[in-house]
Amino acid sequence: MLSFVNYQKSYHNFPALKIDDYSIDQGIYWIKGANGSGKSTLLKTIAGILDFKGDIILKSPAGNLVNPVPVSVKKQTLAFRKLVNFAEAEPIFPEFLTGKEMVSLFSAAKGGDLQQSAYYIESMKMTSYINRPLGTYSSGMLKKLSLVLAFLGKPEIILLDEPLITVDVESLEILYRWIAEKHEKEKTSFLLASHQPFESTVLPLIQKILIENQHLTPL
């Protein structure tokens, strides 16, 4: 489903990550590694936020499971980004916008609808403050918003960077339910980057991936 082609990412000529030709199938994956191991860098390059050498190709079924359509993050950037949703570890949003306005913007860009947006807002118990300016949000509230945005539309893959931080236990259970539902009903794949262990409720669904020695290596 997701293929890395001669992938290399460096910072000021310092090699951060290197992945030779490598593909992962549809599923839920845990990118497990210590801080500084390249987890966030990997997700940001997949999301099209950071530049890198090589290419990343998403083979989107697009209704054709026999011959899936290849979409390159370098050559079909807009199409690729519509199929890939990303939630950062520590999200930052324009403080003058409201949470509802952010949801509306993302939903329009990702092809979502009002019913979908309402489901995620209500189930994450954000209704009481969704109309407030983002400058009034706590870090936990911003994190919840970023998770809602990541589930909007019909993405082929959702990237969650450190989804376990700044989120309370009750909200984590809701997130785990979302992951299971999205994967089961829409066959959405997930890359979950975390140095913390996941709970048993979602762990059985995960196929592990480990960043080790600057290579992406399956466990």
Rank of each mutant, 00 (worst) to 15 (best):
S3E: 15
K9T: 03
L17T: 05
S23W: 00
I28E: 11
G38S: 12
L43N: 06
A47H: 06
D51S: 12
K53T: 10
K53W: 03
I57D: 11
L58V: 06
K59R: 12
K59Q: 11
P61Q: 09
G63D: 09
V69K: 05
V71I: 15
V73G: 08
Q76T: 06
L83A: 14
L83R: 15
N85H: 11
E90S: 14
P94D: 05
F96V: 12
K100Q: 14
M102N: 10
V103E: 12
A108D: 15
A109H: 00
K110G: 07
K110Y: 14
G111D: 05
G111H: 08
G112D: 09
D113S: 11
S117A: 14
S117I: 06
A118F: 02
I121P: 12
E122H: 13
S123I: 09
K125Y: 11
M126S: 08
T127M: 09
S128L: 09
N131C: 02
P133W: 05
G135A: 10
G135I: 13
G135H: 05
G135R: 12
Y137H: 09
S139P: 02
G140F: 01
L142P: 00
L142R: 15
L145P: 12
S146D: 04
A150H: 03
G153L: 03
G153W: 01
P155N: 06
I158Y: 01
L160G: 07
T166C: 11
S171N: 05
E186H: 13
K187Y: 02
K187V: 00
F190T: 11
A193C: 00
S194C: 08
Q196L: 15
Q196T: 02
F198S: 00
S200C: 00
S200I: 07
T201V: 03
L203A: 15
L205F: 13
I211H: 04
E212Y: 09
N213G: 11
N213L: 10
H215L: 10
L216H: 02
P218N: 06
